[in-house]
Amino acid sequence: MASTIVTFELGGREVEVLVRPMTTLQSVLRNQLGQTATKDGCRQGGCGSCTVLVDGEPMASCLLPIEDVAGRRVTTLESLTPAEGLHPVQQAFVDEYAFQCGYCTPGMVMLSKALLDHDPAPNDEAIGQALAGNLCRCTGYRPIVDAIRHASGAMSGHDTEPVR
């Protein structure tokens, strides 16, 4: 099968890649564009470590054929991170010790960002529902839930103290 050129927006700029059919967004990000913040935990949509935002919606990039993001807006952790300092979600993960090994963290941060964009003050139930597809083997999730609540407070301008 012949390769094709796919164009999409990545972190505010247009990128063009030459890909074989059915190449995943994850593979393009990691192997062609060197954006390795997007992790590779299962390639089966089962762990969420490859979560990126496509037009603001969290998606498992390991299951997403690159053709499907043609013309769409992709946000990765590289593009979320400000030039200086950290995004409030990132800062909340630091403050709450919401990771140990760090492998699930990029996907968790992207998912949390999307959740708070849709629901600025989620309760634990909403957080739990949102996190259901993203696995963490180290923390027991509680610090991650706390980080999201903390980030929610920080982004709405109050309760910037860590939950812990």
């Binding site: 957080i127 739990g128 529902q129 996190l131 259901a132 027991g140 999730y141 509680r142 839930v145």
Partner: peptide, 8 residues
Amino acid sequence: GPLELPEI
């Protein structure tokens, strides 16, 4: 998952 968490 996070919906099954006990109080710890």
